[in-house]
């Protein structure tokens, strides 16, 4: 009896909590006249998937999606390459200034975006990288790096040194040892890190908003964030875009909840 009551309460709460998102999903499945209908209905009798198609043609979401995919995957690859070199250095070497460098990366992660954005904008403009994919990829890489380095540092440190020493004795160079011994062993950790990096870039809004100016470079969050939504606006197509855009994070979260939450806790505390 008590158990049923608790589950009932938990279910009610789940509905309350998910209400804003469910309402967006509901809107994304309505034709436009139904969106502006009063009183509103949760499930419209004229239920349709057409907003999910229309947004790619009537709104620029096909370009935005390609931009988002390009920026997020490039930033992920770049961050992983640069980050694993640094993470490896931290996990395998003792050197002067190690603590200072670690602290630098830790602090740069706490840097408020608002306090670097103006010079970054000037830098991008002077280098001809304003409103380009490359500019945004480089900035996303830099923002993601500190967190990625800390994660990889942890994963690499968990691999016993002896395995690597054996490879070095067998005549492997340092880079060979990293490539052939450490990387394969750290693969699960690197995979998790890659997902964090990808989602970080995928969801990033502030820099993407300021450093882009045209549809050919804007990412999905910029498209959604710039929508004002006055009278008779295409709320259904925008909702469809928002739902589709939320799909990768939700899917990855569902598949790897444990790693996700571990990363969340690690990211906050270290």
């Amino acid at each position: 009896m008590k158990r049923t009551a608790t589950i009932f309460l938990l279910t009610i709460l789940a509905f309350l909590v998910l209400l804003p998102f469910l309402w967006t999903v509901s809107t994304s499945l309505k034709p436009l006249p139904e969106v502006n209908r009063y009183p509103p209905e949760w499930i419209s009798p004229a239920i349709t998937f057409s907003p999910y198609v229309d947004m790619f043609f009537f709104l620029p979401f096909s370009i935005y999606t390609l931009n988002s995919l390009l920026v997020a995957s490039s930033a992920t690859v770049l961050t992983l390459i640069v980050g694993s070199l640094a993470g490896y250095a931290f996990s395998r070497f003792e050197f002067a200034g190690k603590r200072a460098f670690l602290l630098l990366f830790l602090l740069s992660q706490m840097l408020p975006g608002a306090s670097v954005i103006i010079p970054l904008f000037q830098l991008a403009r002077d280098a001809g990288l304003y409103d380009t994919h490359v500019g945004l990829i480089l900035v996303h890489t830099a923002i993601l790096l500190p967190f990625v380095i800390w994660l990889l540092y942890g994963f690499f440190s968990a691999i016993p040194r002896e395995i690597e020493d054996a490879a070095l004795i067998d005549g492997c160079s340092r880079l060979d040892a990293l490539r052939r011994v450490i990387l394969p062993l750290a693969l699960p950790g690197i995979g998790a890190t890659a997902i964090f990096a990808f989602l970080g870039s995928w969801n990033e809004f502030f820099f993407a908003l300021i450093l882009t100016a045209s549809d050919s470079t804007r990412t999905i969050p910029v498209g959604i964030g710039l929508f004002i939504g006055e009278y008779n606006d295409v709320w259904n197509q925008m909702s469809a875009a928002a739902v589709l855009f939320s799909f990768p994070p939700l899917l990855l979260f569902l598949l790897m909840r444990r790693t996700f939450i571990k990363g969340l806790v690690t990211g906050a505390i270290k």
Partner: peptide, 26 residues
């Protein structure tokens, strides 16, 4: 899992969803 969803989706989507929920006309 269900209770964590608002944190997992992008803040931009969260803002959008609330803006729509609070829309004065619809």
């Amino acid at each position: 899992f269900l209770y964590t969803i608002p944190w997992v989706i992008s803040p931009v989507v969260a803002g959008f969803a609330w803006k729509w929920l609070l829309n004065d006309h619809f």
